[in-house]
Design a protein around this nucleic acid. Sequence first.
DNA 1: ATGGTTGGGGTCCAA
Length: 264
Amino acid sequence: MALRVTTWNINSVRLRQDLVLRVLRELDPDVLCLQEIKVETELFPHDPYEAAGYGHRAVFGQKGYHGVAILSKLPFERGDSPNWCEKGDCRHLAVRLDGIELHNFYVPSGGDVPDPAVNEKFAHKLSFVDEMETWFGANRTPSDRMILVGDLNIAPLEHDVWSHRQLLDVVSHTPIEVEKLTRLQRRTDWVDAVRHFVPADQKLYSWWSYRARDWRLSNRGRRLDHIWVTPPLKDALRTQSILTDARGWERGSDHVPVTVDLAV
DNA sequence: ATGGTTGGGGTCCAA
């Protein structure tokens, strides 16, 4: 069975409802994982997605900030989420569909100053990634069939950013974050499903700042959005795609959809 | 070294 999974930080699901529907039409994923929906669970607009054929949905949202959702053509069972960092933030959804456990994450951005001693947001980000590593290490094994997607807010590889040297002190690409993300990856043998198809020496971005005068011209991007799979699904990987054009859509998100196709 | 933009909720915080 073909399974297409897309992840997208939508930066307000209500403001960009038409763009979500456009992605569903143009990419036609079986499952769309959203981050930063910025709406309470109870106020999530279900009807347009029901009408678009996405009859199975999980929503974990809060007022104003964060929030994650999963829209699916396939039925699933909702799994539990730990209370990450005991913050009560809506940053994670887990579902089980077709024998696969799918995790949708929105990792804290981490603020501006890359020092956990003076920046509580950066400390939170580091703790969050540590907790992810600990949780998967304690509760799951590499032999479990799992997919992990989301805005991890870390660009781990040299060519996941426009300038490795210039971003070494910029939150999202600092050595301590990259080390923690890599440790999380290794603990459960996660395979980077996008880099599985794209060599590490090739630039790859999923986010461009709103602050650039011309995001396409300056092209100072970062790859913050990821899709990982555990080893049992590695041979099922078929292709990847990053919908860069979506960054240029009118009133678009600063992130673009990242997609992986599997044959499961 | 600095500023640049966006969204949500409300006259500022997070990204």
